[in-house]
Design a protein around this nucleic acid. Structure first.
Length: 591
RNA sequence: GCCCCGGUAGCUCAGCUGGAUAGAGCGUCCGCCUCCUAAGCGGAAGGUCCCAGGUUCGAAUCCUGGUCGGGGCACCA
């Protein structure tokens, strides 16, 4: 007889039992400490353990073991537990009943892809913004880490009952775009036979030559290449004799004058479309999907920046100094005040940032998750201050910083610079090591830690990448199923479910214990925004499967035993598949 | 100078909200295919959890002060 149980982590079931028992303790008067139930680290201690009695020792002024005795005596009777012990200084150890494991196995089979998901998030609307690289060139390896991490965090939030919106903020306005247009135009001229000096601060990457070549195929583009006589002759000198940025600005102004606003915008648009298209394709191939590509230009053109600035002004948090408008961020926790309108009248990037985050709030998102590079940690305080000044809750903004990827070629560090064009692109990396390996590699370390990425190691096919190990476990199970089919052995889950008491081997026990932990791993990984927990869990689970595989045969003559074992490995396959799915890694049927 | 991140086995790193004898992979050494995939399994060796104080029944974990390494501190984006 199977009791119906709501799909929730087993751990929470135990917490409920414990809470019910402890609530009746005399002398507590509602001062319950937070319940802590954790999985036992040592199998000798059972499956779960709680330190509740030790925590209560002080408020109740009694010995932990005595308190534990009383709690255990008050535990409601349930089929979930096979035994409860008191051990050590006062731990309460819980051992799950075989029925509890069997019920969980049945749930894995019944819920399938949904197993492990929960409603913890209670439908909270979360906007996860990630990558948002400037569309001035192809994505590089660092962006790959952002993409893999952001996609996983979004998946984890979705799996725990949040309404997730995945967004890429396209910085398609501002000076970087002007530099892009200039750089592209110079390459087009070059290909048309007119070589002009290339500014040192321009985008020098070969990809722009390619885009220029494609652009020239279109007859329309010829209009963008008028005869040039004295090209920017009055521009201040370039570096190293002069200031590279001043030189660049003069060239941009000259080009704008030469082509007119429409012509300049047309060049810019060619570059933007090509590069953004490349970024979209790259991410899509990498298995990273977005709900929205949000244009900064649309924000500016729609007047959102001006509206945001007037809201900040109305709040009284601004002042004028040296011709610029400053936001008094120091009053709201930032370490210095920030300019929002420059002395030349143009708004700063920070102004757009405030507008963008206000817009996110206006679109109805409860929580704004920004996944940013570690070099952005200074932005957290100022954007929060911006939200607060405009009446939005500053804690609605959560920033998860991703530390840098440091590339190595063997022992040698690879130097990278976007403008010089010397960098390893995400696409190159994907081609070399494969999407699965790259995705898993990127999230196997905490986002807060630097990631050393050795290209030689990652490229070598004899690598130590755990992705193969985990995928192999999945493929092996598929192989067993194929073998059963070949031999004409049939199987169905209802027969498996009634035979589960035949699973008595130590390897089987270990595997079941691992499977039961999956829902709480998902919760933990989601709560901590830490996909690496899933990676480590899956590796351990794969290990348990491989050990079982080596120790026992599944396709045995004993019908009931075979049915039970096959159900166990199918449940394992399901969990492997679900976990890999969260990571965006494929689960191949054969390798 | 101020701020952020880190220091755990030879190497790369896990270690949850403080919990019981600190873990994994790789590397090293020794074993295991008549068998559903050996991209596998089992075993061995390997530790001053950077240092010093503090809080606690209990600290790799929290606090303070050092130290070493990485990064950041724009009227750039």
């Amino acid at each position: 007889m199977r009791r119906l149980r709501k799909p929730t982590a087993v751990k929470h079931e135990i917490e409920k039992l414990l809470a019910a028992a402890a609530a009746e303790l005399p002398g507590l008067e509602g001062q319950m400490p937070r319940l802590e139930v954790e999985r036992a680290r040592d199998a000798k201690h059972g499956d779960y353990a709680s330190n509740l009695a030790m925590q209560l020792a002080k408020p109740l002024r009694r010995k932990p073991r005595d308190i534990a005795d009383e709690i255990v005596a008050r535990l409601p009777n349930t089929g979930l537990l096979a035994g409860v012990d008191i051990a050590g200084p006062g731990f309460i150890n819980f051992r799950l009943s075989p029925q509890a494991f069997h019920q969980e196995l049945a749930q894995i089979i019944d819920r399938g892809e949904a197993y492990g998901s929960s409603q913890l998030g209670a439908g909270e609307r979360v906007l996860v913004e990630f990558v948002s690289a400037n569309p001035t060139g192809p994505l590089h390896v660092g962006h790959g880490r952002h993409a893999a991490y952001g996609a996983c965090v979004a998946n984890l939030l979705a799996a725990t009952g949040h309404q997730v919106h995945r967004e890429y903020y396209v910085n398609d306005a501002g000076r970087q775009m002007d530099i892009l247009a200039l750089s592209l135009w110079l390459r087009m001229q070059e290909l048309a036979g007119v070589t002009l000096p290339f500014p040192s601060a321009g985008y020098r990457g070969a990809y722009l030559v390619e885009i220029a070549g494609d652009a020239l195929v279109d007859a329309q583009s010829q209009k963008l290449l008028p005869f040039v006589d004295h090209w920017a002759a009055d521009a201040p000198p370039d570096a190293p004799d002069g200031d590279a940025d001043l030189h660049l600005d003069a060239l941009i102004a000259a080009l704008r004058e030469l082509l007119g606003p429409e012509g300049f915008a047309a060049v810019l648009q060619i570059g933007l479309r090509a590069i953004l298209g490349d970024i979209r394709d790259d991410l899509a191939e990498f298995g990273v999907a977005y709900d929205e590509w949000y244009s900064e230009r649309s924000l500016v053109d729609g007047g959102a920046v001006d509206r945001a600035l007037s809201r900040v002004n109305d709040s009284g948090h601004t002042y004028e100094l040296d011709g610029a408008t400053w936001f008094r961020a120091t009053a709201l926790g930032d370490e210095k005040d920030r300019v929002v309108v420059r002395d030349n009248g143009s708004t700063t990037y920070f102004a757009s940032d405030i507008a963008y985050h206000l817009d996110k709030r206006a679109r109805g998102f409860d929580r704004l998750v920004d996944i940013l590079g570690a070099d952005h940690h200074g932005y957290v305080a100022r954007v929060r201050a911006g939200l607060e000044a405009t009446g939005e809750p500053p804690e609605s903004l959560e920033v998860d910083l991703v530390q840098f990827v440091v590339l190595y070629r063997g022992d040698e560090k690879v130097q990278m610079s976007t403008r010089s064009g010397e960098f390893i692109t995400l696409r190159e990396l994907r081609d070399e090591v494969g999407d699965d390996a790259a995705r898993l590699f990127f999230v196997s370390r905490s986002n807060e830690q630097h990631l050393d990425f050795d290209l030689e190691l990652a490229k070598s096919r004899t690598n130590e990448n755990p992705v193969f190990y985990i995928q192999y476990a999945h493929a092996r199970i598929c192989s067993v199923m194929r073998e059963m089919e070949t031999r004409g052995v049939d199987w169905d889950d209802s027969r498996g479910k009634v035979s589960l008491d035949r699973l008595t081997e130590a390897h089987e026990q270990k595997l079941m214990q691992a499977l039961v932990r999956y829902p709480e791993m998902v919760e933990q990984a989601a709560r901590q925004r830490a996909p690496q927990h899933i990676v480590h869990y899956l590796r351990d689970l794969a290990n348990d499967l491989h050990a079982y595989y080596n120790a026992h045969r599944f396709i045995v003559d004993d019908d009931a035993l075979r049915d039970a074992r096959v159900l166990l490995i199918l449940a394992t396959r399901q969990v492997l598949r679900n976990g890999l799915g969260l990571l965006g890694v494929s689960a191949p049927a054969s390798m």
